[in-house]
């Protein structure tokens, strides 16, 4: 990988001046990914915070070509762009080498956009899909998605006498992408930019589809201070809420394994976020225990996968 300093000195491909909230994780992830994109790109973005805040007509924060058309179709849209490129290139009508990237929120990836992404991956288009997972529909004011963790308050998994926030666990989307036999899939976090950027480099170098799931703290929806975004991303990884791993042609590699008490209790991480505040009131101990159990079970499962499929 190029040295971070060299990358930092390259011209920005997502410029400042966009309207994402201070402390939003999404543009950090985008800049880290685009920072290692080897050539000119076309970016497809699904409707959500990232899209509406970076393309306020007649302005745009994107230095590469960018297309947004709707919420559920970043995968299908980029497959159209990539196919057009292949057709025109084959006919000798264009010369440049180009790269194709899609960014989707968790809503645009785990939920409404899952079919379109699945289709594009199955067809084998040459593109990189990056999900910035902030664990809810933030753009519409914090509604639950299938990426929202158990216990989280959102406006459609509210807290009340009969409810301690979202009742279900998250969908394991990265596993679903792995089940497509996608050549490259990974999770990443913006706090570990070296890891994220080297994964993005691999994704760009992969012929065919590649997928990166990036945790993307949202100060507004998580009810956290804007200056804690990177620290919160880091602790998500240390608690194994968001393990860092990659799957290359079916082979698993966990990129960070907290040993012993380096693996922090998830409650410590939850406590720092207003969306989980209700869990720390008496009576919700069982929910907290459930969340920890789920994380431990998924972590054990991942360790076994790595052991069997290294």
């Amino acid at each position: 990988m190029a040295k971070p300093k060299e990358i930092a000195n390259k011209p920005e491909r997502l410029t400042g001046g966009h309207r994402l909230c201070a402390g939003c994780g999404a543009p950090v992830a985008v800049r880290q990914v685009m920072g290692v994109c080897p050539g000119p790109a076309v970016v497809s973005v699904s409707t959500g915070c990232l899209e509406v805040s970076t393309t306020i007509y007649p302005y745009t924060a994107w230095k590469d070509s960018m297309i947004h058309s709707a919420f559920e179709n970043a995968g299908a849209t980029i497959s159209g762009v990539e196919t057009a490129y292949n057709s025109l290139k084959k006919q000798g009508k264009i010369k440049d080498d180009m790269y194709f990237v899609a960014f989707g929120g968790d809503g645009g990836t785990y939920d409404i956009g899952l079919q379109s992404l699945s289709g594009a991956v199955e067809r084998g288009h040459n593109f990189v899909f990056v999900c910035y997972d902030n664990g809810a529909y933030m753009n519409t004011g914090f509604q639950r998605s299938s990426a929202t963790p158990q216990g989280a308050w959102t406006t459609t998994s509210p807290v009340g006498k009969e409810s301690a926030g979202k009742q279900q666990n998250r969908k394991d989307l990265t596993a679903i992408l792995v089940a497509h036999d996608i050549p490259y899939a990974a999770t990443a976090s913006p706090h570990n930019f070296k890891d994220l950027m080297s994964k993005a480099e691999k994704a760009f170098a992969t012929p065919g589809p590649a997928f990166i799931n990036v945790i993307s703290p949202c100060p507004r929806g998580w009810r956290t201070p804007g200056d804690q975004t990177i620290a919160l991303a880091k602790e998500a990884v240390q608690s194994c809420y968001w393990p860092l791993y990659e799957v290359e042609n079916g082979k698993y590699k966990i990129n960070y394994k907290p040993k012993g008490d380096k693996k922090t209790p998830v409650a410590d991480w939850l406590k720092k976020q207003g969306r989980f505040a209700h869990l720390f009131k008496p009576g919700n101990e069982a929910v907290l225990a459930d969340i920890q159990d789920y994380i431990d079970r998924k972590w054990e499962e991942l360790l076994k996968k790595e052991e069997c499929l290294a």
Binding site: G75, A76, S79
Partner: peptide, 23 residues
Amino acid sequence: EYIAVESEHSAMSAAIGSAAAGA
């Protein structure tokens, strides 16, 4: 180039991507 999409929503979405890409 033929894209055997997985739905008509994707057919039109891919067509939009392709046409916007100048094809």
